[in-house]
């Protein structure tokens, strides 16, 4: 009996460990195979793929500007107010610029932008592809001799990555400058001092790494959400489940990648 229980537990533990590893391998394969179609199926349906990519950029980038602006303003304002009031107490005003760069540009801007994209575009991608799979639209696409990895996945990968890359710069600009205007109503922090502190701390690599992080987050989010969308099997009730799984996995992966990139560039 004890032997059976132990075997059962081992089996469960084994499955718990192997399932995520399998998923990560499958997601990596989906990414590689989709990118490969750029070269292996060059010239096929270029105009259609380009149009789909532009639509994805519009949905992920342009249509997200409103929410990005509001969140960047509020976040930027809050960090500026907090850092100004706390640092001023210990008399190290020049550190404010460093804190803003480290907290907003290096860490929060890429992560918050990614979370917004996961919530808007990631869920939309997972849901849309799930629906297409169950509705046999993917089979119909395959039956027309069209590779779904090129027609469905590639434009989403390219569109989300390009859009989030641009959004990272927009988020930083709005958080740092819009946030200042917002904070100016509450704290007395002269703009000249703010600009001096900020420019002393903000380097080329801070902005570049913020953009690189966002670009990679975009690729990961789009790939995971496409993968989860394709993973539905039989029923429409699976759609909310795969969407939730996609969101959770995207959040884990973004945090994981964030710390790896931070460690690679800033240690």
């Amino acid at each position: 009996m004890l032997y059976n229980i132990n075997m059962f537990s081992l089996d469960k533990i084994g499955k718990k460990v192997l399932t995520p590893i399998d998923s990560i391998l499958d997601i990596s394969a989906l990414f590689v195979e989709s990118v490969k179609t750029i070269f292996t199926e060059r010239g096929k349906g270029n105009k259609i793929i380009f149009d789909a990519t532009m639509r994805q950029i519009f949905f992920t980038g342009v249509e997200a500007l409103k929410i990005i602006t509001i969140i960047a303003l509020l976040l930027g304002g809050a960090v500026i107010i907090e850092s100004y009031t706390q640092i001023s107490k210990v008399g190290h005003g020049s550190l404010i610029g460093t804190i803003l760069v480290v907290v907003i540009v290096r860490e929060l801007a890429p992560l918050i932008t990614a979370f917004i994209i996961i919530g808007r575009s990631g869920t939309a991608i997972a849901t849309e592809i799930s629906y297409m799979t169950l509705n046999h639209e993917i089979s119909a696409i395959e039956m027309m001799g069209i590779n779904p990895l090129r027609f469905i996945v590639l434009p989403r990968l390219a569109g989300v990555a390009a859009a989030i890359f641009c959004l990272s710069f927009y988020f930083n600009a709005v958080a740092l400058f819009g946030g200042y205007i917002f904070a100016r109503f509450i704290v007395q922090y002269p703009f000249a001092s703010y600009l001096k502190d900020l420019s002393a701390s903000l380097g080329f690599w801070d902005i570049t790494v913020s953009g690189i992080k966002c670009f990679l987050f975009g690729l990961v989010v789009a790939t995971i959400c496409c993968y989860r969308g394709f993973s539905v099997r039989f029923s429409f009730t699976e759609i909310p489940q795969v969407t939730t799984k996609a969101v959770v996995m995207c959040i884990y992966m973004c945090f994981l990648m964030n710390i790896i990139i931070t460690a690679l560039f800033f240690i």
């Binding site: 046999h136 639209e137 089979s139 119909a140 696409i141 001799g145």
Partner: peptide, 14 residues
């Protein structure tokens, strides 16, 4: 596949 026509039972339009 691109040389085959497939008529789906549920139409499967995009």
């Amino acid at each position: 596949r691109s040389e085959m026509g497939f008529d789906f039972q549920d139409a499967a339009l995009i």
